[in-house]
Design a protein around this nucleic acid. Structure first.
Lengths: 117, 117
DNA sequence: CATCAATATTGACAGACATCGATATCTGCG
DNA sequence: CGCAGATATCGATGTCTGTCAATATTGATG
């Protein structure tokens, strides 16, 4: 069973046929766009890449803050966006918070964009 | 040779290794984000899907306008965004303008997102 | 309990964006 | 040439978004 009645964008994309294979309905497009919006920021792209490339597949916020010339609240905001949309998993251990990339979500998104080519 | 010194976002993405395979540099992220921004709109997603699914792989603006409950200038604007970023090719024949999906661009983008999984 | 360090939330602000109506440009045709 | 239809551009407007400083929250530790 699902945790809520409203799907996260990540859950919404898992069930869709590729962009070029069948015409997207308005409803489906409305659920996919937020996922792409989350991805469509240079800082968030680098965050995702950093987390994915970190040892163990997860990274502590403390590691991420230093990688950017941005304030801590700004990084926290971007991580929240990625988490809310379902692209990052979040786990708190002690004072530290670790994020992990949802590879299945990325794979589904890639299929949506590039499937059927 | 390229037409200009500045690459379109589509040209920029063609040369990149997947998001999760290597850390994205700031420069690369800055060039990829506009491409994703162009995709990250429900109307543009549906436009892309409609064009891709149209017979002959291309669609006339006149066909596209009717598919939305939006003004003609708005559709024109969205098509321009997709064209400028390199996701749509544009060809004028008589009074009509036809758009065609750059499938290579979509494929490259999919590799960037989902490659290495 | 008091303090400190890590992370998140809030509120403000400037810039970006989606949309529209009005208008301009282009092209075929009479 | 002049009109009509297709598409693009312009200017305005309301909304969304990225960023920051300030502050709150959370958890470990003395």
């Amino acid at each position: 069973m699902s945790k809520s009645l409203t799907l996260t964008p990540v859950e919404a994309v898992a069930c869709c046929s590729p962009l070029v294979s069948a015409p997207l309905t308005e409803e489906v497009a409305d659920r996919i766009a937020p996922l792409l919006k989350a991805l469509a920021d240079p800082v968030r792209l680098r965050l995702l890449s950093l987390v994915a490339g970190h040892e163990g597949g997860e990274a502590c916020v403390c590691d991420l803050n230093d990688a950017f010339d941005l304030s801590q609240p700004t990084i926290s905001h971007h991580l929240k966006v990625l988490h809310e949309v379902g692209l990052l998993d979040r786990s708190k251990r002690g004072v530290w918070v670790f994020y992990r990339v949802r590879r299945d979500a990325l794979a589904d998104l890639a299929t949506l964009i590039g499937g059927g080519l």
